[in-house]
Nucleic acid binder design. Structure first.
Lengths: 234, 234
DNA sequence: CTTGTGAACTTGTTAGACAATATTCAGGAC
DNA sequence: GTCCTGAATATTGTCTAACAAGTTCACAAG
């Protein structure tokens, strides 16, 4: 999957640099608010400035970097508000997906395999659970076969991975509970109970959201969305 | 509470060119498969090639242009498979949104206004209905207050606008019916009947999808899209 | 008719440069 | 001492010119 050679000769240099920067952000080497000066990056990768500039702009479009006009790009510092938005969006996308899967009672085999791996890793460190957990949710989305849905959800998950390495104390994951809830979700899909599956997922993601926000030092406000612009219609 | 959001239009040349190209694609001036050669565009806009290159790459990331390595970028030719994918994704996003809105029984005022405009335009040409129709659906999404959901839905709608001008015979829109169904959706939200609202929207978008696919000369298969020439990016 | 060869065109990337803007830091006013 | 002001520095936005690498198409050879 990941292009292995750090020397940037694989496909497109811009692609390679963007992929490398992404990996370094996910691995925690590049922490939040780390500035990525174009000239420095160009020197580090031994390429010209426009090349690394294109890679940076791509990551800005993905939301992993932030930059203002004439300002140095920095690794996005996803705060409580961003985490809340990301997890709400995840819930919106995935709960509807569960309803559709439940209609056909189709249980993706990849999701089963990913959760089985989570079950086996109950003794490992919480960090090891991140990858299989992401695979579990991604396989559910991919099962509906919509390229655009998969792409959108992957974009959200990349932001999740970015803010995951902000909290060193990853005790926000309870392996046994996660495994059990995933398993229950798969059962509800097989049983055709879409509403129950969606409700459980809402709870599942809602608790993860609150824990992550608390770990980031924010107030876990249950909603705090849509304050204006709404009117009851009689 | 919100410290930012002062609408200063800090515009760069790249942004301006990207916006202009987008507008020209939506207006139908740039039709599907139109090649956008970098040197030609640079000459047309009287800017350097890297500048227009950045604008093109941005539109490629948005899915409005397609390009292979070392190949000229062209306006995306959204075929039946792409339209099916786009409308399914729309349904996934928006039906869940309707369920959440119905829980609080809050009807966005912008959606009411947009549909009222549709009602007044029942005599106009079908093309005039596109803008208010898009505004109607966008206001529903925006009402939940998730920046990422709004961004994702806007991305889908930009693709919709792009393939709209491929079909000159826009008789796929029945103004009266659209107005009535929109109104019914708002009523169901106000009544707290999320399931019914989601089901009606599914039908609403499903019929629009089939008409559009038929107008593009494809088979309106209910699901099961064979991935064709989507996103040649490596 | 198929297959290769080559020229023309286009993009990928580099180098250096200049202008515009942001940031920083020193110095002066109170 | 603190705050404001302004110049020096740093960084990005954009341009010009150029070369390398790849694609497309016409055309000739088999």
């Amino acid at each position: 999957m990941t292009p292995q050679s750090i020397p940037v000769t694989a496909t497109s240099i811009v692609d390679a640099i963007a992929a490398d920067l992404r990996a370094r952000m996910f691995s925690g080497e590049l922490t939040a608010d780390t500035p990525l000066t174009e000239t420095d990056m160009a020197a580090a990768y031994n390429v010209a400035r426009p090349t690394v500039k294109a890679a940076i702009e791509r990551l800005v479009a993905e939301g992993l970097l932030v930059r203002g006009l004439h300002k140095t790009a920095r690794v996005a510092a996803l705060g409580p508000a961003a985490v809340s938005d990301i997890y709400h969006a995840r819930a919106y996308l995935e709960s509807e997906i569960l309803r559709r899967l439940a209609r056909t009672r189709l249980v993706p085999t990849d999701a089963v395999a990913a959760n089985a791996e989570i079950g086996r890793l109950s003794e490992g460190t919480p960090t090891d659970l991140i990858e299989p957990d992401i695979r579990f949710h991604l396989s559910l989305i991919d099962a509906v076969g919509s390229d655009r849905m998969s792409k959108m959800y992957r974009s959200l998950m990349s932001e999740v991975r970015l803010c995951m390495n902000r909290v060193q104390s990853l005790n926000l994951l309870a392996p046994g509970l996660i495994y059990a809830e995933h398993e229950r979700i798969l059962e509800l899909i097989a049983a055709g109970e879409g509403d129950a599956a969606a409700a459980l997922l809402d709870d599942h993601l809602g608790r993860a959201r609150e824990r992550l926000i608390k770990a980031l030092g924010g107030e876990p406000g249950p909603q705090a969305d849509a304050p204006t612009d709404l009117l009851a219609r009689s």
